[in-house]
């Protein structure tokens, strides 16, 4: 599961940071005082890293619940 999400994220990154998506933002205008392309690149970059952190830090346990008890019972 994690593996598939990571691969999907890789593909997303490839799309976000490449032609032709970049050309959409390559315009001579300013948003919040920042050039659009500059703003887009760093926002997308930050969003990408945020997604990445969410995926890798997600607990693996949800994918495969343990069958054995976590604590050895003492008998």
């Amino acid at each position: 599961m994690k593996r598939q999400r990571l691969i999907a994220l890789f593909v997303l990154g490839f799309l976000l940071f490449n032609y032709p998506v970049l050309s959409l933002f390559s315009v001579e205008s300013v948003v919040l005082g920042l050039p659009v392309l500059y703003l887009y690149l760093f926002c997308a970059w930050g969003g990408f890293v945020w997604l990445l952190s969410r995926i890798v830090d997600a607990p693996e346990a949800s994918a495969s619940p343990r069958r054995g008890p976590a604590v050895p019972p003492t008998d």
């Binding site: 032609y19 970049l22 050309s23 001579e28 005082g33 920042l34 050039p35 392309l37």
Partner: peptide, 30 residues
């Protein structure tokens, strides 16, 4: 940032640095 970028935008050569030239070679290089 606003001040810096708007000052830079007054110069055409610097304005060019803020966008990507929409040519195949530039994107290919990218």
């Amino acid at each position: 940032f606003g001040d810096l970028f708007s000052s830079a935008a007054e110069r055409a050569d610097l304005q060019a640095l803020l966008t990507l030239e929409p040519s195949a070679s530039v994107f290919g290089e990218w």
